[in-house]
């Protein structure tokens, strides 16, 4: 495969890795903060899945990039502007309703996305997708149940869930944005055409929202920019935290 193609696949793997890493990081913030011990363990399992997924994508990206790049140089030595995760992943963890709603919206998306990525012409991406898909099926089962429990629980839980969804909805259109890089890779059979997933995603979500007794709002406001490094203010703080040791003691092995 040509170097140009490799560069593009690296960038693609890198962005998928960034999505997973930032999401895993946010979930890991729940450790010792869950509403009860069983849920603490369960959320940590999900966080571990995402960190594992991030490592798979980033290791692959690093291999393609070469020149001494590793999963860790990618994770720890890039600044905010070079990070390419979608904005929805970097929003602070919020309360349990926010975390649940985000997880659910993403699980429905990832189920579709990973299913499609299993058919990628790139065998590494397809293999990572296959492993991740198993995890996501389980995540979705959990997050969907939580949507129903919170939506049909108390007035307070329903209200918190509704609020969370409204705070999140404007970040969902970005999940379906296809830029020039992805357009290229789609035509090569490597990347997933996200735009084509939106309808199925929406109808799956609507069904669950309906069962949960919560309105699925239309995205009347839309924020985007993650893929080009145009992030929210939250990401910088996340990275300051995550990269502190590596930045304070550059060039060391850990």
């Amino acid at each position: 495969m040509s170097n140009v193609a490799n560069e593009k696949i690296a960038a693609y793997a890198n962005r998928l890795g960034d999505d997973s890493l930032i999401h895993g990081h946010r979930l890991s913030e729940w450790c010792s903060n869950g509403p009860f011990l069983e849920e603490d363990l369960a959320m940590t399992n999900v966080a571990l899945d995402y960190i594992g997924r991030a490592r798979n994508f980033l290791t692959y990206a690093a291999e393609l990039i070469g020149g001494g790049a590793t999963e860790d140089t990618l994770a720890y030595e890039r600044d905010c502007l070079e990070y390419t995760n979608l904005l929805i992943y970097e929003l602070p963890k919020g309360d349990f309703a926010f975390t649940t709603a985000r997880q659910y919206l993403l699980d429905e998306f990832e189920l579709l996305f990973l299913t499609a990525l299993c058919n990628s012409e790139d065998s590494t991406l397809a293999a990572v997708a296959e492993k991740s898909l198993k995890e996501t099926r389980y995540h979705l089962r959990r997050s969907k149940e939580w949507m129903l429990r919170l939506g049909n629980g108390t007035e307070e839980s329903k209200e918190k869930l509704q609020t969370a969804v409204e705070q999140l909805i404007g970040y969902t259109p970005e999940l379906f944005e296809v830029d020039a890089l992805e357009k290229d890779l789609i035509s090569g059979g490597i990347a997933v055409d996200r735009a084509g997933l939106e309808e199925s995603w929406r109808s799956a979500c609507e069904k669950t929202f309906d069962e949960a007794g919560v309105n699925m709002p239309q995205a009347v406001w839309r924020v985007k920019g993650g893929r080009t490094g145009f992030h929210t203010e939250h990401l910088g703080h996340l990275l300051a935290d995550m990269q502190f040791v590596q930045r304070a003691y550059p060039g060391c092995q850990w």
Partner: peptide
């Protein structure tokens, strides 16, 4: 903070 979740 988890009280409302358990109540739900």
């Amino acid at each position: 903070e988890g009280a409302w979740v358990r109540e739900a």
